[in-house]
């Protein structure tokens, strides 16, 4: 319950503060969002599988986000913007896999 409330609080804070992101940082935010969605689905899945662990969840979120942002940065430095595409593809696949696992848990099929 507390995590859900904090999620809403975070969103409300963003709406109230209305922060603007410098244009050159937009790709990083987008990648961080994809990572966050993946972590949320992964967390829910492990919760349903009764293997949820706060520490693992937080660590996974932080390391995934850090690595994804780092890769995007490296891609930027090398002039290969496709790195972000690769990250989006990988995390997109993971999101759908997690969703499938959640569906199997919930509906048993």
């Amino acid at each position: 319950m507390i995590p859900l409330i904090s999620l809403v609080i975070g969103a409300v804070v963003a709406i109230l503060l209305h922060p603007t992101v410098p244009q050159n940082l937009t790709p990083y935010v987008a990648i961080a969002v994809v990572v966050a969605i993946d972590s949320a689905f992964g967390g829910f899945r492990s919760y349903l599988e009764r293997t949820f662990n706060d520490r693992v969840f937080v660590l996974a979120f932080v390391t995934n986000a850090a690595l994804a942002v780092f890769l995007v940065w490296v891609g930027d430095q090398l002039g290969v913007s496709d790195f972000s595409t690769a990250i989006v593809v990988v995390f997109g696949i993971r999101i759908f896999q997690n969703l499938a696992a959640i569906r199997r848990r919930v509906f048993g099929g």
Partner: peptide, 27 residues
Amino acid sequence: RPHLWLALVLGLAGFLVVVAIFSARTE
């Protein structure tokens, strides 16, 4: 304590999603 961390991280996630939506729209 990890609960606190969890709350923080999820709060950050919600914050990020909204910020990304806003920045894409303003762009």
